[in-house]
Design a protein around this nucleic acid. Structure first.
Length: 238
DNA sequence: AACTACCTCAACCGCGATAGC
DNA sequence: AGCTATCGCGGTTGAGGTAGT
């Protein structure tokens, strides 16, 4: 049983506590977190030890900013899984569910606010699909060949908390480098990310302009299928 | 330099699920 | 079957850092 909370230390972990926890886990492995806390001589709850390990101390954690590539994946995976942060994090090597959750709260919710949309509204989903994702694709990749990213009808329609929108397949094609797709594919878990290097005949070239995160003026071109809703139908004003 | 506002992210909390007795 | 301990997840908070004035 956990000890009385009055005896427990809370707040930021010290380097000394970290090394005690790491040492204890190296001896006994993960799990039985209360025992680990006790054996390590830490006045911390098992819960706190587990969290510290998973979010900060475990090997191969990625630190630093979420890359555009990771952002793209988070947006895609959120279409499929909703607020299942741990599920999303499974597909982002080295990132914890906390990282994903923090990204969503600080960046995505902020974006929704900026475009005057409810985070789960159809309108904001359109913004993600038709502006944000193409923008991320354009940001991260120098030009060389074109690739395509496909968000399936299922991805669009199965997102919890969101009304269905009425198109079958949403595709983005952008000037691209094939590496991104190799990397994305390595994270792939049932998500339809495909690439071909020709322009689909049933697609139309769209372009739009926006301000990026550094408030620089950007122009983007991308191809979209005729099945997609027209950009003109949406209020995408920033 | 001092103050304020905003942002980031580590950590806590509550709750439900699961395991073990 | 019922109880308790433990784990894991999602939501939330708040300390510390940074940018703006």
């Amino acid at each position: 049983m956990e000890q009385v909370s009055m005896e427990m230390r809370k707040g930021r972990w010290s380097p000394d506590e970290d090394s005690k926890l790491i040492h204890s886990i190296s001896l006994f492995g993960q799990g039985r977190w209360d025992s680990i806390a006790h054996v390590a001589g830490l006045k911390r709850s098992g819960k706190s030890c587990r969290l510290r390990w998973l979010n900060y101390l475990r090997p191969n954690l990625r630190r630093g900013k979420i890359t555009p590539q990771e952002q793209l994946l988070i947006l895609l995976l959120h279409f499929r899984f909703g607020n299942r942060w741990s599920k999303i994090a499974e597909n982002l090597p080295g990132r914890s569910d906390n990282d994903v959750k923090n990204y969503w709260r600080t960046k995505v919710q902020k974006h929704a606010k900026e475009v005057h949309c409810e985070i789960n509204s159809q309108q904001f989903r359109h913004f993600i699909l038709y502006q944000w994702m193409p923008s991320l694709l354009a940001q991260q990749i120098p030009t060389s060949s074109s690739s395509e990213i496909i968000v399936t009808e299922n991805d669009i329609n199965t997102c919890p908390n969101v009304n269905v929108i009425s198109s079958s397949t949403h595709s983005f094609v952008t000037e691209d480098d094939s590496n991104i797709w190799n990397n994305l594919s390595s994270f792939e878990d049932g998500i339809n990310i495909s690439h071909d290097f020709s322009t689909p005949s049933d697609m139309t070239l769209y372009n739009y302009s926006s301000h990026d995160e550094d408030d620089q003026y950007c122009c983007h071109n991308y191809w979209a299928s005729a099945e997609m809703l027209s950009l003109d139908e949406m209020d995408l004003s920033l």
